[in-house]
Simulated scan of single mutants.
Amino acid sequence: MQLNLTFADLPSGDDGLWEQLDETTREAVIDRLAQAIATVVTDKHPSQRETNDE
Score class of each variant (00 low, 15 high):
residue 28 A to M: 03
residue 50 E to W: 07
residue 7 F to S: 15
residue 34 A to V: 05
residue 16 G to K: 04
residue 17 L to V: 14
residue 14 D to M: 10
residue 20 Q to I: 02
residue 6 T to V: 12
residue 23 E to D: 06
residue 27 E to N: 04
residue 33 L to S: 00
residue 17 L to N: 12
residue 36 A to C: 01
residue 28 A to T: 00
residue 26 R to V: 08
residue 30 I to T: 09
residue 10 L to I: 07
residue 46 P to G: 05
residue 39 T to F: 11
residue 24 T to A: 07
residue 15 D to Y: 10
residue 30 I to D: 03
residue 20 Q to E: 02
residue 8 A to N: 11
residue 45 H to K: 13
residue 3 L to D: 06
residue 33 L to F: 13
residue 6 T to Y: 14
residue 49 R to E: 08
residue 37 I to S: 08
residue 51 T to S: 08
residue 52 N to T: 11
residue 2 Q to F: 05
residue 52 N to F: 05
residue 26 R to H: 01
residue 40 V to E: 14
residue 48 Q to N: 05
residue 26 R to A: 02
residue 16 G to V: 02
residue 8 A to T: 13
residue 30 I to W: 01
residue 31 D to V: 02
residue 8 A to G: 12
residue 45 H to G: 09
residue 15 D to G: 04
residue 33 L to E: 00
residue 17 L to S: 12
residue 47 S to Q: 15
residue 54 E to I: 11
residue 15 D to P: 01
residue 43 D to S: 13
residue 22 D to T: 01
residue 27 E to V: 01
residue 54 E to K: 11
residue 8 A to H: 08
residue 30 I to V: 12
residue 31 D to G: 04
residue 11 P to H: 14
residue 26 R to L: 00
residue 14 D to H: 03
residue 32 R to K: 13
residue 26 R to M: 02
residue 7 F to Y: 15
residue 45 H to M: 13
residue 9 D to W: 07
residue 5 L to C: 08
residue 39 T to I: 08
residue 22 D to F: 01
residue 14 D to A: 11
residue 34 A to Y: 04
residue 28 A to G: 02
residue 54 E to S: 12
residue 6 T to M: 14
residue 4 N to Y: 09
residue 50 E to C: 03
residue 31 D to H: 05
residue 5 L to G: 09
residue 30 I to S: 04
residue 4 N to H: 09
